[in-house]
Design a protein around this nucleic acid. Sequence first.
DNA 1: TAACTTACTGACATATATGTCATTAACTTA
DNA 2: TAAGTTAATGACATATATGTCAGTAAGTTA
Lengths: 204, 204
Amino acid sequence: MPQAKRSRRKEARPEEIIDAALAEFAAVGYSAASMAQIAARAGIARSTIYLYYADKEALISAAFDLRLGQAFAAAGQGVALSSGPFREVFHEMLTLLYTRIVKSDALVLLKVLVAEGRQFPQLLTRYHDTALNAAMTMLTGLLKQGLARGELRPDVMGYDIKLVMSPIMLAAIWHLTFQELEPIDLAHYIEGHVSFICDGILTR
Amino acid sequence: MPQAKRSRRKEARPEEIIDAALAEFAAVGYSAASMAQIAARAGIARSTIYLYYADKEALISAAFDLRLGQAFAAAGQGVALSSGPFREVFHEMLTLLYTRIVKSDALVLLKVLVAEGRQFPQLLTRYHDTALNAAMTMLTGLLKQGLARGELRPDVMGYDIKLVMSPIMLAAIWHLTFQELEPIDLAHYIEGHVSFICDGILTR
DNA sequence: TAACTTACTGACATATATGTCATTAACTTA
DNA sequence: TAAGTTAATGACATATATGTCAGTAAGTTA
């Protein structure tokens, strides 16, 4: 879809540029992404990017702001979980988390952090304190509720909540890397997540 | 530790160069790693690298060969698992896997693949077919044995084995990214892994 | 210790990236 | 529709990377 002539789009540019940048980061990673290629994706000249962002680092920082903001705007609406038995609410919350994380546009942020997070400690902190902590807090809250209802073993709270979250992390990483090689059937995977975490695998 | 004079080390060079390269990849990622910096780490001139490796891609390919080979050489020895109850053998195997994966020098390979695996589909395939499949095969074998002994629920084999492996993946990714921000107590984490997967979290 | 072999180096040519700036042209206003 | 404003561009200067190659010197052999 080639742009016939050049056009002036002061309001729309910033987000268009970030979308192009994130697409490029997803394709080749942050370091390998060139401003020229990002500009090409956005359909503008390379120098135009500098009208809006000082350099590549300002770009990724703005990209984090935008995507994390979007994710939380989305998370704010429609978190109406049922108040049924633990297994049911857990399944609902997991479905929500898988959708919001594994299938989300923000997944590229995790990729960048794993790859080159050491160069951006403030982004690491921001992602950890917002996205990851939000997920962990949600899960911890759910477990506390289940415990209060007497549905969970009391010693459960003594373990790391990340264990409950870990299948989501694997699915996220898998989507970024091995999905084409060996696809994950997400719906069935979620069933297993609920089953293994709720019941374990030993006979009762 | 500066090298006083230049020395000739035909046999030792290749591995020294790869070690330096992997250290640099771990620090800044593959794309951002420069041959100059790798050479500096190895204590040699940049051009010396080209005597042993055609270019950066040949370097990373050789690095995969070396580290995957080392990991499997290590895996070959001392896999003497007890034949006790499932929980006990499972715990032993997990301890082995965490040591071999999370604390291993090969962890940087996973990082490179997550970040820039799309540019190296053959490395993706190699890592998937060897490292990941080996871990999954070990776990599947263990589960089958537990099932044959009547210790496991029969429907367990219907779910994705990656669910059982996922806490390892999270720990690995965590070590690469958020470990300094929020450390994982690995021994306690493994206890939780065993507990959650074996017993689940619901009351019995 | 002199001649030989070759691992290693420094300099060169080339390619690709970045950030700046004077000029251009799209859109607005009088 | 002419003049004014400014978003957008293309060219420039600079920086950093890559891969090559003739020359250097470490180690070996006679």
